[in-house]
């Protein structure tokens, strides 16, 4: 298979999986107690608006037609109206998505790089004090209960020491007024620190442990002896021959642990009132805002699938042994 062919196959795969999830969600909504109307149409609306919405979603049609309309609506980006905001759901979630992506990608990428780097060092000095300290700390980070850890950080760094804001993305005084872009960006970064730190530390633990064990098994490989036999310096052996190979499985595991990270991301957003998709989902679920919940869920599923796709492609690109 050629490279474009491989990418195409992967894309189709993602599309099919997403379609299955979409379908499953539709039937879950119909299976759940209560009629679908009450789930998709805000009971507080005026009768005309209600009629209009019912028409738009085909809620008075037979099930299969409803399904087709549901798929069509999804493809055109109309998810209905949020009960709580009284706005089209699509407007709300697009705004939230950027915050989730900011938090999620920065924490994952930073943690992956740091974890790979530190894991490499730990494995290289296996059995030393340095290794013991790093492995044990990583183990502790990895097993920390995320919400609890987030609350501790909030309590100590935010509340007691006052180093960081207690929540949100932007200080209220900057909402209005004409603060410069730079000031706003710095303020957002200031708000980002605590949630970022939470996710970073927890992901760092798992990537460090993975890289360490992957590196240890690579160091037992014969080609490491070959590299030594060539008279290469220890640094070249460590970085070029061991770490490059060892990092590959870690990248795969980034893909596999995405689901875990998303869970953690939602909890972190909730605690630091970071206005992302995860927090929005929890809000929607708590307030029975079904259209919003549905859209958030689908968006999260999409984020997971796309991130997985990226990891797959990255892996295929990095590992010459993958034949398309």
């Amino acid at each position: 298979m050629t490279k474009p062919g491989y990418i195409l196959v992967k894309l189709v795969e993602v599309a099919v999986i997403f379609f299955i999830i979409l379908t499953a969600l539709f039937f879950l909504f119909r299976l759940s107690p209560g009629d679908p109307m009450s789930k998709m149409v805000d009971p507080m609306l005026t009768p005309e608006d209600m009629a209009h919405l019912i028409e738009q979603m085909g809620l008075d049609r037979p099930l299969w037609e409803q399904y087709l309309i549901y798929v069509k609506n999804f493809l055109t980006g109309s998810f209905g109206f949020s009960f709580h905001y009284g706005e089209p759901v699509s407007h709300i979630i697009v705004d939230k998505l950027k915050w989730t992506i900011l938090l999620f990608t920065t924490s994952t990428v930073l943690a992956a790089f740091a974890g790979i780097f530190l894991g490499k060092i730990a494995a290289w000095h296996k059995g030393s004090h340095l290794d013991n300290v790093m492995s044990i700390s990583a183990l502790v980070c990895y097993t920390l209960f995320i919400p609890w850890f987030a609350l501790l950080l909030l309590w100590i760094l935010g509340f007691k020491l006052g180093l960081f804001p207690l929540g949100g993305v932007l200080s209220p005084q900057l909402w209005v007024g004409n603060a410069s872009l730079l000031v706003r960006i710095l303020d957002v970064l200031h708000h980002l620190m605590l949630p970022l730190m939470t996710l970073f530390i927890i992901n760092l633990g798992s990537y460090l442990l993975l890289m360490r064990s992957s590196m240890l098994s690579v160091l037992r490989e014969d080609y490491i002896i070959t590299a030594r036999a060539k008279g290469l310096s220890e640094k070249v052996i460590r970085n070029k021959h061991a770490a490059q190979n060892a990092a590959l499985p870690v990248i795969t595991s980034v893909g596999l642990s995405l689901a875990f990270s998303i869970n953690g991301g939602a909890l972190t957003e909730q605690i630091f009132t970071w206005p992302g998709i995860g927090k929005e989902l929890i809000f929607a679920v708590s307030n029975n805002d079904y259209p919003l919940a549905q859209a958030c869920f689908l968006l999260i599923a999409l984020v997971v699938l796309v991130a997985n796709l990226i990891v797959d492609l990255l892996y295929a690109w990095l590992d010459p042994r993958i034949t398309y």
Partner: peptide, 19 residues
């Protein structure tokens, strides 16, 4: 190593770096 004394390993071993 490599300059004055070199070694021929067994190929069935993973003596070449795959990446």
């Amino acid at each position: 190593r490599g300059a004055k004394i070199a070694m021929i390993f067994q190929a069935a071993m993973n003596a070449l770096n795959p990446v």
